[in-house]
Simulated scan of single mutants.
Amino acid sequence: MALPTVKVAAAHAASVYMNKAACVDKACSFIAEAAANGAELVVFPESFIPGFPVWAALWAPIYNHDWFRLMVENSVMVDGPEITAIRSAARRHKIIVSLGFSESTRASVGCIWNSNVLIDEEGKVLNHHRKLVPTFYEKMVWAPGDGHGLQVSNTRIGNIGALICGENTNPLARYSLAAQGEHIHISAWPAIWPTRKPGGQNFDNLAANRIRAGAHSFEAKVFGILNAGFVDNSMLDLLKKSGDPVAIDVLDNSPRAATQFLDPTGATIGDTLQNEEGLAYATFNLNDCIEPKQFHDITGYYNRFDVFDLIIDRRRISPATFKDTDPASRPNLEALPALD
């Protein structure tokens, strides 16, 4: 059976920092533009709504309480009006959308997750994933997710899977998607990752992202969309208001991430964007996934399933399980007499 050839887009875009409503409007604009240019899939970076919590890397937690409150205030429910607006845009423009967002929950006013949704061209949510493990300083912002979203979605343009940032360092998470017949792998990244590597130099997220995304494309023999955010001046201005010279130096000198596309050998194809904001495009002929599997098919013959046995728990974790009595046996509170 012949596989399709598809045009895909990735938004190398800056969030309207800590402003969920403006982020939604910007996302809808990019969705319309990508569809008008013939893309059948458009991808957004990690935590595009409302922006990546760079502040957690710059200052000790005691200085970040106000930032956390702002982040929670601008996080969104997966069934809330913001995601509904993105779903409507996908349906209106008949395009598949992958979106990174900070997710809130009715179970707690302070719990948020680093999440991603895949939405089809009819506006249906195909998959809802919460990042398994917040990375490094992200642990001061986001809660750990679960395995429920480790799913590959079968779409008219191929089988699509997605992981968020550091999850692409986890070979078992990546394998769980490869084992579901993935054709297109989305890896979502922040625009900047302020830290240092041994020797005092800033962590080279440009190289690190490329290595991890390339490894998955090569190992799973899939096309990759390496989609990073963009740092704009408004975001920098907000973060630099502290006046902390160390933080300002780190912000100014940390490498900016790039948005790229990879073929099933791990080679770059299509557009690359790093120092300018916009939509990047590539064309994937999914039939090109077939021949490389003749060399190594890690979910087929190039494995030893008698030696390795991987179990994936995809149950959605809930904070509590309530076992209510029969509703018919409950008192009808609405029928109680009014108080004088």
Results as ranks from 00 to 15, higher is better:
9 A>I: 03
12 H>M: 06
24 V>L: 09
25 D>E: 15
29 S>P: 07
41 L>Y: 06
42 V>R: 04
44 F>L: 09
45 P>T: 05
53 P>H: 05
55 W>G: 03
60 A>K: 12
60 A>M: 08
64 N>V: 01
65 H>L: 10
68 F>K: 15
68 F>Y: 15
69 R>G: 10
73 E>W: 06
74 N>F: 03
77 M>K: 12
77 M>D: 13
83 I>N: 04
85 A>Y: 05
87 R>Y: 08
92 R>C: 12
92 R>P: 03
93 H>M: 09
95 I>A: 08
95 I>T: 09
96 I>W: 09
96 I>S: 05
100 G>Q: 06
102 S>I: 11
105 T>W: 08
106 R>W: 11
107 A>H: 15
108 S>N: 13
109 V>K: 10
111 C>V: 14
115 S>C: 05
115 S>K: 02
116 N>C: 15
116 N>D: 12
118 L>Q: 10
122 E>N: 15
126 L>A: 07
131 K>Q: 15
133 V>K: 13
142 W>C: 11
143 A>I: 01
144 P>S: 11
147 G>V: 07
148 H>I: 07
148 H>W: 13
149 G>R: 06
150 L>A: 09
151 Q>A: 13
158 G>Y: 02
162 A>I: 11
168 N>K: 06
169 T>H: 13
177 L>W: 03
177 L>E: 04
179 A>N: 15
193 W>A: 06
195 T>L: 02
198 P>M: 06
202 N>Q: 09
203 F>Q: 01
206 L>R: 11
211 I>G: 01
212 R>Y: 04
215 A>Y: 07
215 A>W: 07
216 H>A: 06
219 E>R: 10
222 V>D: 02
223 F>D: 00
224 G>I: 00
231 V>E: 01
232 D>F: 00
233 N>M: 08
234 S>H: 13
237 D>I: 03
239 L>G: 02
244 D>S: 07
246 V>P: 04
247 A>N: 02
251 L>D: 02
252 D>Q: 03
252 D>I: 00
254 S>C: 10
255 P>R: 00
263 D>S: 01
263 D>F: 00
267 A>R: 14
272 T>C: 05
274 Q>N: 03
275 N>L: 08
278 G>V: 03
278 G>M: 03
280 A>M: 02
282 A>Q: 00
285 N>Y: 01
288 D>K: 02
290 I>L: 15
290 I>P: 02
291 E>H: 08
295 F>K: 14
299 T>F: 12
300 G>I: 09
301 Y>R: 12
302 Y>E: 11
302 Y>M: 13
302 Y>N: 14
304 R>A: 12
305 F>D: 13
306 D>E: 15
308 F>L: 14
314 R>G: 04
317 I>E: 14
317 I>H: 14
321 T>N: 09
325 T>A: 13
328 A>N: 12
330 R>G: 11
333 L>G: 04
338 A>P: 09
